[in-house]
Design a binder for these strands. Structure first.
Length: 598
RNA sequence: GGAGGUGUAGCGUAGUGGCUUAACGCGCAUCCCUGUCAAGGAUGAGACCGCGGGUUCGAAUCCCGUCACCUCCGCCA
């Protein structure tokens, strides 16, 4: 009886054995007499050599075989003849001489080639995803995804966590993202919602005394898609009782360090322990709360240097309570007027009124007349500005400035920083640069609704020493909330939760829920907190983004087996689709079509 | 809700107002070929240029609309 092997695992040690392999025809080379078939399975490729003088029946069968036929081959494993070995293939020293070649299933002509890496229109790949996933590159990604979740499960299992499933049919609490709704047949006019995250359930599990919970949880949000956002996605969801912020950080950080070590491949950690920034510090230095620290080029505050200058754009903004910050763009003093205009348009797209600039020109070692703003400053002021950026004149760098309210300055320059980091190739793509962002504000004012909104979610605990601020200056209160950031992506986020009913009630009040409203939406939580809720907290890591980071993919669809298109459709199954009227009747649903667009 | 990009044989591309009977590579089909490995050689089939209007003597090419996909803004507690 022949032993069954995976195609890619056969080696010279197996020479002489009678082996069976199963797989897909990667390609076929018919030399007239000899036919070579390269058979592929998940493990790799192996060559089948079919000589009509050895086995006429197998040769006949091999003549009719085409790409992607499914075969089972039994035969003798032998060393390839001298001079015909292929060092580029792990199985290149050996080949199978079949005694039996069975076609388990033929395949018709393919919509695209599976056996090469050429670019194929993505819609076509998604429509025939089962073929796309046969390509080695996709198999590698899906396998890496598995290894990552396996690593997470092992890591948490070793630390005494329980993996607990929470329901997919849940109560709608339309605060954050739009919910996906599921109509109830048994309760006419009522709906379940698919969970945006298992947040409330995992807190209930803490009240239930589970102490250490995790779940590889599917989450659903009915919002528009992006290259890194799908309507359904997966997160590693964790919650622990009797812990403080530091316990979560020191649980998660070693997990990612170990994971990079084991599964990162070419990708290496930039730095460990992970640097920690407060939210305020991150906003000040990087212009956002998810800094890409693979490169420098930090935002630099020059407000003090320019507040009394004759340059009205700067002094006026500061007088109005704003600030002036800048970036030093290395080597960009030579930018043409047109290129600089491009930068101006870029920041205007993010709310800035404009972009002032000073060129640290190379030729004459002075700030050149190419900078219209230069004439408003004394030579001493100009030198002071250059010095603030750590730059001497003559470096060929370009200083760019935005003057506005702090939020606008941060957004415009933060976006420009990321853009220029890419454009100037300041980023090493083999680095994984993790950092923690801590001390988020608890709430922020929503001027449109004239109320305070939770920055994280309404269950996040304020720092104990800031509870008093909830009455006096809510915007100044910091939360025990933390994000893990990697390469500019928010990779994980969590917080210490409120576990006391009076604090939770107070916060709901601050967030403008009436007591009745709070009871209707979150009564189960308020009730639970009255029955001995332990202090607890947790974190959730976006699995899809982690896989993107570990595989170097820049698109979330490539790390999901069956993703949705940008309009949230499934190209393969053509979901969503109409349902028949009987199904609708069962659900007490009537369709009101939107008016015909003219 | 908004902005931009793309759409040409099965696949990837070229062609951007007449030289086009739409070209090239891969794939596919037929034939030749017994050591290939991106096999090679020969022959051949395959496209109303996303769809609908319009401008023009003439449109794959210009204009308008529309659809699909992609990227981004808004949105994503």
């Amino acid at each position: 009886m022949a032993k069954v092997y995976a195609c890619g695992e056969l080696r010279t040690e197996n020479i002489g054995e009678e082996v069976t392999v199963r797989g897909w025809v990667n390609n076929r080379r018919d030399l007239g007499g000899l036919i070579f078939i390269v058979l592929r399975d998940r493990s790799g490729l192996v060559q089948i050599a079919i000589d009509p003088r050895d086995n006429e029946e197998a040769h006949q069968a091999a003549s009719d075989v085409r790409n992607e036929y499914v075969l089972r081959i039994t035969g003798q494993l032998r060393q390839r003849p001298e001079g015909t070995r292929n060092d580029r293939l792990p199985t290149g020293q050996i080949e199978i001489v079949p005694t039996k070649l069975e076609v388990l299933n033929p395949a018709k002509g393919l919509p695209f080639q599976v056996n090469d890496n050429s670019e194929v229109d993505e819609m076509l790949r998604l429509r025939y995803r089962y073929l796309d996933l046969r390509r080695p590159e996709m198999q590698r990604i899906i396998a890496t995804r598995h290894k990552i979740t396996k690593f997470m499960r092992d890591y948490l299992d070793e630390r005494d966590f329980l993996e607990i499933e929470t329901p997919i049919l849940m109560k709608s609490t339309p605060e954050g993202a739009r919910d996906y709704l599921v109509p109830s047949r048994v309760h006419p006019g009522e709906f379940y919602a698919l969970p945006q995250s298992p947040q409330q359930l995992k807190q209930m599990l803490m009240v239930a005394g589970m102490e250490k919970y995790y779940q590889i949880a599917r989450c659903f949000r009915d919002e528009d898609l992006r290259a890194d956002r799908q309507p359904e996605f997966t997160q590693l969801d964790i919650e622990m009782s009797f812990i403080e912020q530091e316990d979560i950080l020191s649980l998660i950080e070693p997990m990612f360090i170990g994971m990079v070590d084991k599964l990162g491949g070419e990708r290496k950690l930039m730095q460990q322990p992970f640097p920690r920034f407060t939210y305020d510090e991150s906003m000040a230095r990087y212009g956002n709360d998810k800094p890409d620290i693979r490169f420098g080029m930090e935002l630099t505050d020059v407000s003090d240097l320019v507040k009394d200058s004759g340059f009205q754009v700067f002094s006026g903004a500061i007088a109005a309570g704003g600030q002036v910050k800048g970036l030093r763009l290395p080597g960009c003093a030579s930018y043409s007027r047109r290129e600089i205009d491009g930068l101006v348009e870029f920041v205007k797209g993010f709310g800035a009124k404009g972009l002032a600039y000073l060129a640290l020109d190379k030729e004459n070692d002075t700030l050149t007349s190419k900078s219209p703003a230069a004439k408003f400053f004394t030579p001493e002021q100009l030198a002071g500005l250059a010095q603030r950026f750590g730059a001497a004149t003559g470096t060929g760098d370009l200083l760019v400035f935005v003057a506005d309210q702090p939020a606008v300055v941060a957004n415009a320059l933060g976006r420009l920083r990321n853009e220029m980091g890419k454009r100037l190739k300041l980023i090493d793509n083999n680095l994984l640069a993790f950092c923690w962002v801590l001390d988020f504000p608890l709430v922020e004012f929503n001027p449109d609704e004239n109320r305070w909104d939770a920055v994280h979610h309404p269950f996040t605990a304020p720092k104990p020493e800031h509870i008093g601020l909830l009455d006096t200056d809510p915007g100044a209160a910091k939360a025990n909330a933390y994000d893990l950031v990697c390469n500019g992506y928010e990779t994980a986020g969590g917080s210490i939760r409120i576990h006391q009913r009076d604090v939770q009630t107070k916060l709901f009040g601050l967030l403008s829920y009436s007591p009745a409203d709070a009871q209707e939406r979150f009564g189960h939580m308020l009730n639970a907190f009255e029955f001995g809720a332990p202090p607890h907290g947790g974190i959730a890591a976006g699995l899809d983004r982690v896989v993107m980071l570990f595989t170097g993919e820049d698109n979330i669809r490539n790390v999901i087996a069956f993703p949705k298109t940008q309009s949230a459709t499934d190209e393969m199954t053509q979901a969503p689709s109409p349902v028949d009227s009987r199904q609708l009747a069962d659900l007490h649903i009537a369709i009101v079509k939107p008016p015909e667009k003219k």
